[in-house]
């Protein structure tokens, strides 16, 4: 079986499951490198096709990589500015040497019902989403906690469930949290979608006020809201702290209809080093 055949089967299966055609051709979901007609020795899915992840895939003799995020350090995977870059050249040489083929599955995955990236994160967190308050809010899982807890206790629970080490938290440690909105990757919910949301548990979000409305700096907003007597907080788990695990679900989904080749999830893992003792 070849990567092209697997990709064709993925689109066919998604369509059969009711995923409508893309509004426009995706520049993200393309082959990034390698020959799509190569014979597959094994498939690996991952949150991001990092160099380290590729080495682990090769160690398992998996030559077809299905990645959720980019390979070449930008959303459109342009290599124009990288042609003489030593890091790019070393990664490319490794890919060429081992005959790897990389295909990105980003936009299609997010159009599936359920979206495996959100579903994977919800499973990891051990939560079930409330019934959406409105159709507009249905993209964002909102969870009423079984028991209210402090932000500090919530942070402890969430980071134990996800196993992250490069998380960041803002808000009063002692604030009581009743309702949480979930984000994954750079898809970050807005506090105002549900006024009762106390805390956002998400991946990453741009800091500062460079976005155009209706996108805004959630950290600065949460701090002002807290000062005005409506405590709000944010737990940032990082991009791979929220979108790696969904690719495990995607591997399981593909294994349901691709029976001829072995497929397994290989996490990209967090890019950041574990914190030093001083980072309190």
């Amino acid at each position: 079986m070849t990567p092209q055949q697997v990709v064709d089967a993925i689109y066919a299966r998604a369509a059969a499951e009711g995923v409508g055609p893309a509004p426009r051709p995706s520049y993200r979901d393309t082959f990034k490198i390698g020959n799509p007609d190569t014979a597959i020795t094994g498939i690996a899915t991952t949150g991001m096709s990092t160099f380290d992840m590729l080495k682990r895939a090769v160690a398992e003799k998996r030559n077809f990589i299905i990645t959720h995020e980019d390979t070449w350090y930008s959303d459109n995977d342009s290599v124009e500015a990288l042609s003489a870059d030593p890091i790019y050249l070393a990664k490319k040489a490794f890919i060429d040497e081992h005959g790897l083929v990389i295909w990105r599955n980003h936009d299609l995955a997010h159009r599936m019902h359920p979206d495996p990236l959100f579903a994977g994160q919800m499973d990891l967190l051990g939560w079930k989403a409330d019934k959406p308050a409105s159709p507009a809010a249905s993209r964002w899982p909102v969870v009423t906690l079984p028991e209210p807890m402090t932000l500090e206790a919530l942070a402890r629970y969430v980071t134990q469930r996800t196993g992250t080490h490069s998380h960041r938290i803002t808000g009063m440690r002692a604030m009581m949290v009743h309702k949480v909105a979930i984000g994954v990757g750079y898809a970050f919910p807005d506090f105002t979608l549900d006024d009762d949301v106390d805390v956002i548990v998400g991946g990453e979000s741009a800091e500062g006020a460079d976005s155009h409305l209706p996108t805004y700096d959630a950290t600065a907003f949460a701090q002002d809201s807290t000062l005005l007597g409506r405590p709000r907080g944010i737990i940032l788990l990082g991009h791979m702290g929220t979108e790696d695990i969904g690719m495990k679900l995607l591997a399981e989904w593909i294994a349901g209809f691709i029976k001829d080749v072995s497929i397994r999830y290989i996490p990209a893992t967090e890019p950041f080093s574990p914190p030093g003792p001083q980072q309190g």
Partner: peptide, 17 residues
């Protein structure tokens, strides 16, 4: 952004630079 210079720098070690 965690899909730009963050993975570039994270890849630098495996790349030998």
């Amino acid at each position: 952004r965690e899909w730009e210079l963050v993975p570039y720098i994270a890849d630098s070690r495996a790349a030998g630079h």
